[in-house]
């Protein structure tokens, strides 16, 4: 079950993968990217970015806010509670 709504604004994404790192940390209490539920890919020839959230992502439902949202300072990841905080 996901809580709230995460949206990605690709125009703001700088492909820094702070979100991947934060998600991995939330899942493992360690640093890496392999256990992240987010997958950021940059096409280095064109500058295009793709950000995918895996099905396993629950929007950090036991946390005050999603870790990826907290880590992203560019405005690419937005999050809001919907339906009374569900």
């Amino acid at each position: 079950m996901k809580r709230g709504l995460i949206e990605v604004k690709l125009d703001y994404c700088t492909a820094c993968r702070s979100c991947e790192l934060a998600c991995h940390f939330r899942n493992t209490s360690s640093f890496g990217t392999s256990h992240s539920f987010i997958d950021v890919n940059l096409n280095k020839a064109t500058g295009e970015v793709q950000v995918d959230f895996l099905e396993a992502c629950d929007n950090c439902r036991e946390e005050p806010f999603p870790f990826c949202y907290d880590a992203c300072c560019t405005g690419a990841i937005t999050w809001k509670l919907v339906n009374g905080g569900k």
């Binding site: 125009d11 994404c13 700088t14 492909a15 820094c16 993968r17 702070s18 979100c19 790192l21 940059l42 020839a45 064109t46 500058g47 970015v49 880590a71 992203c72 300072c73 560019t74 690419a76």
Partner: peptide
Amino acid sequence: EVRRLGCFNCSSISCSHFYKVSDGPFSPSA
């Protein structure tokens, strides 16, 4: 400018620019 880019875990600055030259004698270059 196509977009700004950041190094690993640098959402707080992301100083890099991705530039593309589409026209003229020095194109294409990105």
